[in-house]
Design a protein around this nucleic acid. Structure first.
Length: 276
DNA sequence: TGCCAGGCCGAAA
DNA sequence: TTTCGGCATGGC
């Protein structure tokens, strides 16, 4: 990986980064493909654009922002091709890896990931994106990039100050109460992300299950996408169905300490094949 | 129109 | 311990 600094963006060459696989694999709900082919969204309260260049891809903003924020957010220092070489050799897993080539697990902010995956339960991705978009537009802060208006993800404190009636415009249904409950526990300091960082993944998962509206699936998605616990392994109904295609069944042990990355390849592939 | 969606909760078996 | 109905909403 080689970095080239430009006036208003940074170019990264020598990676297998796939913007579409990374931003369209269902791990985040805030980035959208633009008419010019770039991906634009907001993370860490900053609007950002990413696009392909002849030799790699580019990220808007300064070299300092790239070094401090985007390099880690995009998980650019982990060699996904090398680690996925150790995954099982069955056709199903290998097809999933090939399909999702260049996919990277983002390091999203914990509160945004938790809130987003509470919203995700029993919901489809297009509608999740819509609810999150409304949440940010109504309660986030306005920001701007290249003349386009974006909104930051609202803080837990901001949401904790709201009522259920004020959340009703989200049209999130029964998830309103879960969002509000989680926001209040986070904002009060009773539920602390930095304390969670000090726990191993199973212990952190147990803590997460104490949140209203957080079960095993939401907990694992949060651990993977909000805390970058690459061993977290969301198991749900489609995964059990997908296991029918994998002799011997799918399990965390099959993929070692990168089970979370593997499950994301498989999730993305299974959706494309309409498995389940 | 009906099925389904990155589920969770509480009750019943 | 597993199973099951209910929950809000809207994409397809």
């Amino acid at each position: 990986m080689h970095i080239i600094e430009h006036k208003d963006h940074v170019e990264i060459v020598g990676t297998d980064m796939s913007l579409e696989h990374t931003f369209e694999c269902g791990q985040c709900f805030r980035f959208f493909r633009q008419p010019d082919g770039a991906y634009a969204g907001v993370a860490f309260d900053r609007p950002v654009r990413l696009w392909y260049t002849p030799d790699g891809f580019a990220v808007s903003g300064s070299r300092e922002d790239f070094d401090n924020i985007w390099k880690k957010y995009l998980d650019l220092e982990l060699d996904y091709a090398a680690l996925s070489a150790d995954f099982p050799r069955d056709d199903f897993t290998q097809s999933a890896i090939a399909y999702g080539r260049g996919l990277r697990i983002l390091s999203q902010q914990p509160w945004e990931a938790l809130c987003s995956f509470i919203i995700s339960q029993c919901n489809n991705i297009v509608r999740i994106q819509g609810i999150v978009r409304t949440l940010c537009r109504l309660f986030g802060e306005e920001t701007e990039l290249m003349g386009e208006i974006f909104y930051t993800f609202p803080t837990a404190e901001r949401i904790a100050s709201l009522s259920l009636d004020e959340l009703a415009p989200l049209r999130a249904g029964y998830r309103d109460a879960y969002i509000l409950s989680a926001a209040r526990r986070v904002a009060s300091g009773e539920f602390c992300f930095s304390a969670l960082e000090r726990l191993d993944t199973p212990a952190a998962r147990r803590e997460l299950l104490s949140l209203e509206g957080v079960g095993s699936k939401v907990a694992d998605c949060f651990l993977l996408f909000g805390m970058h616990r690459l061993d977290a392994f969301p198991i749900d109904t489609w995964m059990k169905k997908a296991a029918a295609y994998y002799p011997g069944g799918l399990s965390a042990e099959s993929f070692g300490k990168y089970a979370g990355i593997a499950q994301q390849y498989i999730f993305y592939y299974a959706k494309s094949q309409k498995i389940g």
